[in-house]
Amino acid sequence: MLTIDQLTKTYTGGDTALREVTFRVPRGQVVGLIGPSGAGKSTLIRCINRLVEPSSGAIRLGETDLVNLGGRELRQARRRIGMIFQEYALVERLTVMENVLSGRLGYVAFWRSFTRRFPGRDIENAYRLLDRVGLLEHADKRADALSGGQRQRVGIARALAQEPELLLVDEPTASLDPKTSRQIMRLITEICAERQLPAIVNIHDVPLAQQFVDRLVGLRAGQVVFDNAPDRLDEETLTEIYGAEDWTATDQDDEEPDFASQAQGSLRLVGTAI
C-alpha cells in the first residue's frame, strides 16, 4: 500500500509543481493519473522513487517512509519500486537481456554486474519475464533493433525483474500507435492483476485510461481535483481538469466543434468500452 500525504514540490525556480497532494493506493489497484501537460503528473511519480526530491509531505510504501531515506536505504527502497518510462528509456546499445537484467542491479554486487555474471535465478527469471511479454526469442538482440511496442515490453520486463511492490508508469503509450497502446495498457493491467501489484499510471489519453484503470486521479496545477472511479468522470470535471479548449483539442481538430455533444459522445464511447 502506498500512502501519499500532503506532498508538495516547489522547484528551485519557485514554480510549485505539486500542492499538498494526498491519496493512497491499496494493493492491486491500478490508478490512472490524468491532467494537462505541466500539471505535475511526472513530478508526482518521480517524487515517489525520489528521482525528484519532494519539498515537503510524506510518502510511505508499506512501513517505509520514502522521503527521508538516503544512500543505501534509498537504493533499497528504489528496487522495490518498478518504473516504466515514456519512450521506453532502454539503454539502447545494450542487449534486451542486459536491459532486463539491469532491473536486478539493486540486488547484485558491482563486480557481478560488471562482469555480467548475474545469479542463475535472476537469469531464469529474466527469461520467464521475456516469455511473458512475448520477446523470448529477442533476448540477444540490441534494444535499438526493436520496434516501439517491443521496446516498451522490454521496459515492462525490466521493471518486473525488480520484483517490485509498486509500479510507476510514466506515459507508457506516448509514442505508440493506438493499437499497440491498447496492447501495452492491457499487458500492464493484466500483470498488475496477476501479481496484485499496485500501480500509478500517468496517462494523457483519457478514454484509454478509462478503459483500463480501476481508479482515476485528476491533477490540475499540482492539485488533486478528481479522485474517483473512471465512470464517474463527467464532462464538467474534464473541463475543470483540462480547461475547455485543451481537452476538446485532444479529440478533434475540426473547425467549430460542437463541444457538448462531442464530449458526451466520447464519454459514451468510453462507457461502452468498459
Binding site: R79, F85, R93, L94, E98, L105, S113
Partner: peptide, 27 residues
C-alpha cells in the same frame, strides 16, 4: 548522453557505479 536512460537505471535502485556502467558507458 541521454539522461532518460540514466534515470531509468537509477530508478532500479542501482548504485552510482552501476548507473555509470550500465547507463552511461554503453552510450
Amino acid at each position: 548522453t541521454d539522461a532518460r536512460q540514466v534515470e531509468a537505471v537509477t530508478a532500479t535502485g542501482a548504485a552510482r557505479s552501476q548507473v555509470i556502467h550500465y547507463g552511461i558507458v554503453p552510450q
